[in-house]
Design a protein around this nucleic acid. Sequence first.
RNA 1: GCGAGAGUGGCGGAACUGGUAGACGCGCCAGAUUUAGGAUCUGGUAUGCUUCGCGUGUGGGGGUUCGAGUCCCCCCUCUCGCACCA
Length: 817
Amino acid sequence: MAYNFSEIEPRWQKRWADEKPYKVKRDSSKKKFYCLEMLPYPSGRIHMGHVRNYSIGDVVSRYLSMNGYNVMHPMGWDAMGMPAENAAIKSGRHPREHTYDHMKMMRVQLQNLGFSYDWDREIASCDPEYYRWNQWIFLKMMEKGLVYRSRRSVNWCPSCRTVLANEQAEGGTCWRCDSEVELKELEQWFVRITDYAEELLNGLDNLPQWPENVKAMQRHWIGRSEGSFVEFQLDGINKSLEVFTTRIDTIFGATFVCLAPNHPLVKEIREISPEREAIDDFVTKMNRMSREERLASTEKLGQFTGIYALNPFTKKRIPVYLANFVLMEYGTGAVMSVPAHDQRDFEFAKKYNLPILPVIVPEPGFRYEEELTEAVEATGVLVDSGVFSGITSDVAKIEMNEVAEAGGFGRGAITYKLKDWGISRQRYWGTPIPIIYCDKCGIVPVPEKDLPVKLPDDVAFTGEGGSPILTSESFLHTTCPRCGGDARRETDTMDTFMDSSWYYYRYLNPHLDTAPFDVEDAAYWTPVDLYIGGVEHATMHLIYTRFFTKLLRDFGLLKIDEPVKKLVTQGMVIKDGRKMSKSLGNVVDPDDMIQKFGADAVRVFMLFASPPEKEIEWKDQGAEGALRFLNRVWNYGENNSEIIQKKENIDPEKLKGEAKALFQKLHQTIAKVGDDIEKRLHLNTAIASLMELYNLLSATDLESQVSAAVAGLAYRDLIRMLMPFAPHMASETGRIYDFDVSLWPELNRKFAVADSFTLVVQVNGKIKDKIEAEMGIDSDLAFELATASERVAAELAGKTVVKKIYIPDRLLNLVVK
RNA sequence: GCGAGAGUGGCGGAACUGGUAGACGCGCCAGAUUUAGGAUCUGGUAUGCUUCGCGUGUGGGGGUUCGAGUCCCCCCUCUCGCACCA
């Protein structure tokens, strides 16, 4: 009879839910392993990406448990955020109801896949019991001076009606809804992540088990740049402007200065400039340009301001321009332009006929043409640079910084692309920022004893007039904790990336009400040993979460510097060569697949088709193949139940022939599968070798008693090794034939090697023959065997062997003349 | 443009330390079983030729080596990320 997954799988799932075999406790006598998968947003349905992500984690968790590790394997919900609130606006139902319904449905789906979570540790970030600690962390940060309020031009999504972090507005569009992002001035709460920029950058060097591309993305995101701030006095006005440059060594070649069109100084300049109208026109034109248009073209556009600046080194008077390529978000929003040595400045100078003045000789003997065709960006030796002429760029940078600092008009400086993290969101479904505004006392933090500040229920979800929280009278009005007078609450909520920055610490003590988590539990369980998730979180979540770990460490709660030892970013699950999406109509639903092939087959196919980092194409035929394999194994059991149940003692030393070969294959497989899971996470090759073991087992003749005994053993161990991949089928098999599937088979290294090998004989590097030989033979014996071969002998006839290269147990190469 | 990674049969992929290229699976072909289909089982499946054999072959070209999918140099293509970052 075929393996009846639709009866067997639910039965085991129920048993696991009832008996909780995956519940864990701190136990210092055991080696711990913290296996974490990125928690899902409760959208209502899990998708194939989740299935893949969680299947990988489940194999590792189950495998290590079977090997005696104390494995922490939790699951929870990133449950705040805009979709639930948007749904509430449409349906009138409270976001909480949506969210809890969704979590319930998805929990069932995850249980249907047989994942080994300790469900008693489940968390939901929308639970006040959880977000109370977001608020607590916020207050702690405030105590340490790590949060501040500031009026800033921020990324505003008109559709979501909220502020977005830079990371959430990459490419000028909202990361959630893709609408075009606008700039808007708002009072916001900011977190000083830039205080940790240097450590976040340097820490990457201590993460050898993180993928190189993720580290590169983070380095780029942090964007450290060494250079100088230099102040330029404006001619005839008592004002100065500050530029940032990494090439102060080229300052004698600066022939103009450029400002970002939205630079604050522009307002003042236009007041006194003869070019007032032209400035206004240009600024309007730039503002009108969409971000897309701006990105599409690299054409340099500029406008003379009518104002001149004085180069502090040369005292020369140079024009100040507005330029489209200068970004207000970076450095000071102003640059000194050295067209001879910067390509952008060069293009600008060409277009507006500004002088180009070379001041660097990149290599000895280099001559400048009458007319440059492009900027010379290499460093070298300074010329025409006053007292600095003749020294190298490197030295000049240091000396010029010193001169600038002594003269009070500049200094060496480091800038970052990383910005402080704006966490205010003008939405309801998030953690309330625990702040009270009092007319007398000003900004007052909510005292710790009053936490959590809970989300109010008396709100209307109309989709109009900003955050729904503004409709709650009970929430808005409060009393000042300092003076007791009337006061109002902060109505902004936190970016949900705050929630997900530390959730895996809360799993340790999900219901603790005196602290976010227990310090000693954290000392035992952290860091996370393996973290699996999508590469789309390479910058945002994975930078924030590293930042939070450093914060919590500095609060005295953690003893680690980095949260995650090994990071794996799994590839996408695609269909018909494309990303699955509703609009393409190529979405594969996990529930349908479970119904069709069973959870075990779905899991096995997902893991078998590709190594984790790579993309994977969903194919029903592939899942069919996985099911076929499980079925074959199942049927072998049914046909040979006696020998499987017998459990005879085997003396490996006395084995011969087929029995010995199978025994050796078994131990080779134990070694290989263990290595593949532990060292490389190549679950595809682990499954392949299990298939190989089965293929040999099914081909083994069971006539002799010894062979049958070894086959029984091999079958039981095969099932044990299948347990992490296909836990339902393995559990049921173990139950039927009465053996324990909770332990990984013990490896006998002595038998994990074969006793013969194929000696490959090459002559001048070309394969001439393959000869079966005993393991461990020496070079002379190998040569003897080789020359005994007719084909090799024919090759050697009449020639001299000049060199013999013998690679033990593999190959013999004879170099002949 | 910059950064990271990848190019191996019809397809997904394997080859871990420079040592038998194509494990394992999908698909396909043939056979067995079956009234038939499906399922199952057995065998075959890189390619060329003069096919019990010989040669060629890991995107292209060169190099190092007794030996290269693997190491080095140049080029091409693709994927991902960033993108006027001063």
